[in-house]
């Protein structure tokens, strides 16, 4: 890092430059000056996103061994592998902010950094693989497409690639459900039951209502976040209802109806107490997901040590 001669108004000038970049909707790059709080917010958000990709491998990974056709097994395995790849891009984006992947992994495993609560729900049938693709990846895309234009360059560029792959996953999920709906009565019931379980948790993926979202305002001002939680949730509902109709499933919300005046669907209120409980760590799978991740990390420690020792020895030769 270059030493900059002390200058009384330096901080103010740097801040002004940063503000101007944000105002132009231009990108902040790793070597640019940025306020500490901006850096911290980004690390928190990108790391949480990376952790979500890694923990998110588990619910669907649960069905790789039991995929009911070889084609579906290939699709599912490739998808879960993509999630590992997304985790890699995002940890790399985070490393440009001066935090290492190992540090971030430590923060995940110790519970100091979070991941998306949706992955604390269990996957109980093969239809869940399709529903996660359709609803969970669909909600993730709604959240993530605006992030392609986020103010921090490496994050935005990672998101462009991730969004393309996520949209592919969403189509695959929807296509699985579509195929199952053309199958037997049991399969159709399996799809409906899965949608019943995942609908409300998917709506919760957009976070608490705007009125209760403490970090949102500042993130919007910094251009890290481009749309509010409630805007994105509405967008998701509006997009999903016709897809559900085409699929032939019923979304489990008696309050769901088109509102001509608003030009949007009205919908019911998710159970925010449940979201709070899952975030607090009391969700159906919180302990299991973290234990799985910790076990993989601990079981692999001797391998990472061996690779380091081998590289050092080879390097010394």
């Amino acid at each position: 890092m270059t030493t900059i001669p002390a200058e009384p108004d330096l901080e103010a000038r740097l801040q002004a430059g940063f503000d101007a970049t944000i105002a132009r909707r231009d990108r902040i790059e790793p070597r640019d000056w940025m306020p500490d709080a901006y850096r911290k917010t980004l690390v928190r958000q990108i790391a949480q996103h990376a952790h979500s990709e890694i923990i998110g491998m588990q619910p669907e990974g649960n069905w790789i061994g039991r995929a009911p056709s070889l084609r579906r097994k290939a699709i599912l395995l490739a998808k879960v592998q993509d999630e590992a790849g997304h985790g890699l891009y995002l940890y790399s984006a985070c490393e440009t902010l001066g935090v290492s992947r190992a540090e971030l992994t430590g923060l995940l495993l110790s519970g100091r950094q979070k991941y998306s609560s949706i992955f604390n729900y269990p996957t109980l049938s093969y239809a869940d693989v399709g529903t996660i693709g359709w609803l969970v990846d669909g909600a993730a895309i709604c959240n993530q497409v605006p992030l392609c234009r986020t103010s921090y360059g490496p994050y935005g560029r990672a998101m462009i690639r991730i969004c393309k792959e996520e949209s592919f996953h969403q189509r695959q999920g929807y296509e699985l459900l579509m195929t199952m709906m053309r199958g037997t009565d049991e399969q159709r019931a399996m799809v409906q039951e899965s949608v019943d379980r995942f609908w409300w948790p998917s709506l919760m993926m957009f976070g608490p209502p705007d009125a209760n979202s403490p970090n949102s305002e500042r993130s919007m001002a910094w251009g890290i976040k481009r749309n509010s939680n409630d805007e994105l949730r509405q967008k998701f509902v509006d997009m999903t209802v016709p897809q559900a109709d085409a699929l032939g499933v019923t979304l489990p919300d008696p309050g769901l109806r088109w509102n001509e005046e608003r030009g949007h669907y009205d919908f019911g209120e998710p159970d925010w107490r449940e979201l709070a409980a899952v975030i607090r760590g009391d969700g159906p799978c919180n302990a299991q997901r973290l234990a799985h991740r910790r076990a993989a990390h601990d079981d692999g420690a001797w391998v990472r040590e061996a690779a380091t020792a081998f590289a050092e020895r080879e390097g010394a030769r």
């Binding site: 061994g65 070889l70 879960v80 592998q81």
Partner: peptide, 29 residues
């Protein structure tokens, strides 16, 4: 090999093992 998915010592090896599982699955089909 696919049982290793999400259990490997590092992300790079997780991806490598899944790749190999996919290759062999393709051959099997």
């Amino acid at each position: 090999l696919s049982e290793w998915c999400s259990r490997a010592p590092d992300l790079e090896e997780d991806i490598a093992l899944a790749n190999m599982a996919l290759d062999l699955l393709g051959q099997a089909r």
